[in-house]
């Protein structure tokens, strides 16, 4: 089962959170931009993990949910004149509905077929947005406002404050999702991922749980979209494209799915790596590609899985008790 306060997971999450806060407080302008982008991807990758890590449903369509969140928020504020406080919940809800619909349509597909079905829906949404003059078509929508929190003494138009807020939002998502996954709902999702047939035989509604997880994953990804729209103050159809979904997928898998903290780690590593390498070569794609290959060679369960295995080995060596077997091992089951 998934334990929110597993020591290793919690230590890594605190480490990442601490690094994020430190960076938000001390980083230069560029670092703040990268940090906010990392938060967007971290939230989207956690949403992805909800499906991939627990129910073994690897989606190539999370751009659809991120894009829906971003466009509903941008559309309601820029075109509809609504205040951000009303538009943001509506955007999250809208992305949740998108998740629900995609979840319903793909409920019978598995594995690569699920991946391709989500890709299909994402691409159809991409074409739709690209061809909607009302949504700005290829050029997107500009002038997207950030929420006004001046009543609380918080100025989100300041880059540093915004980056800090983005990190806090990602942490909040981590805690909420972790809480949920540690519940009976999370255990059922894990069971579906392990053996869908057996869960069905137990009389548990597999379809119901899968659709609910998709809706939730969509809503969380939609929140990432709202954050992206607020960060750039601009939205463009690229959010819907499969290459964006592929980025989310890559980050989550590199970091290690099923751990919730792995995707955050993956997002941070890939975003940092991309900008760092792009600073010295236009061929950064090759470095990123080799990094992906290396990440797989390190073990199929991502960097978090690698760390968890190393931690287990270390513990065994430190406590060579009689028999040496440690049945109760939190990280092992994640």
């Amino acid at each position: 089962m998934f334990r929110l306060f597993d020591p290793l997971r919690t230590a890594l999450a605190l480490l990442l959170f601490g690094a994020g806060v430190l960076r938000a407080l001390t980083g230069d302008v560029f670092a703040l931009e990268i940090l906010a982008e990392t938060a967007v991807f971290a939230i989207a990758a956690m949403a992805f993990d909800l499906l991939a890590g627990f129910s073994r449903l690897v989606s190539m369509g999370h751009g659809l949910f991120v894009g829906t969140g971003a466009y509903v928020y941008a559309g309601l504020t820029v075109l509809g004149g609504l205040p951000p406080a009303a538009a943001a919940p509506a955007a999250v809800l809208g992305a949740g509905v998108a998740g629900l619909l995609v979840g319903l349509a793909t409920v019978r597909t598995r594995d690569v077929f699920f991946l391709m079905a989500t890709l299909a829906f994402g691409q159809m949404a991409h074409v739709f947005v690209l061809r909607s003059p009302a949504l700005g078509g290829d050029d997107g929508l500009t002038g997207v406002p950030r929420p006004d929190l001046s009543a609380l003494g918080v100025d989100l138009s300041d880059g540093r404050t915004f980056a800090l807020a983005a990190v806090l939002l990602a942490a909040l998502v981590y805690l909420l999702l972790g809480r949920l996954l540690a519940s009976a709902f999370g255990r059922t999702l894990l069971a579906i991922g392990a053996d869908e047939g057996r869960v069905r035989a137990l009389g548990i509604g597999v379809a119901r749980h899968r659709v609910a997880a998709a809706a939730l994953s969509g809503a969380v990804a939609g929140l990432a979209g709202v954050l992206a729209a607020c960060h750039a103050m601009y939205v463009s159809p690229g959010l819907f494209h499969w290459t964006f979904s592929g980025e989310v997928l890559t980050m989550a898998l590199v970091g290690g799915v099923g751990s919730l903290v792995g995707p955050v780690l993956g997002a941070a590593l890939v975003v940092e790596l991309k900008y760092a390498v792009a600073a010295w070569t236009a061929h950064w794609g090759a470095v990123l590609g080799l990094f992906l290959v290396a990440a797989v060679w390190a073990g199929g369960d991502g960097i978090y899985g690698r760390i968890a295995r190393a931690a287990r080995a270390l513990r065994r060596r430190l406590r060579p008790g009689p028999g040496g077997a440690h049945v109760r091992d939190g990280a092992g089951s994640a």
């Binding site: 690897v58 794609g285 990123l288 590609g289 080799l290 992906l292 990440a295 797989v296 060679w297």
Partner: peptide
């Protein structure tokens, strides 16, 4: 999926 996507980028 990840490793072969990486190879495609390369």
């Amino acid at each position: 999926v990840i490793a072969t996507l990486g190879l495609l980028f390369v």
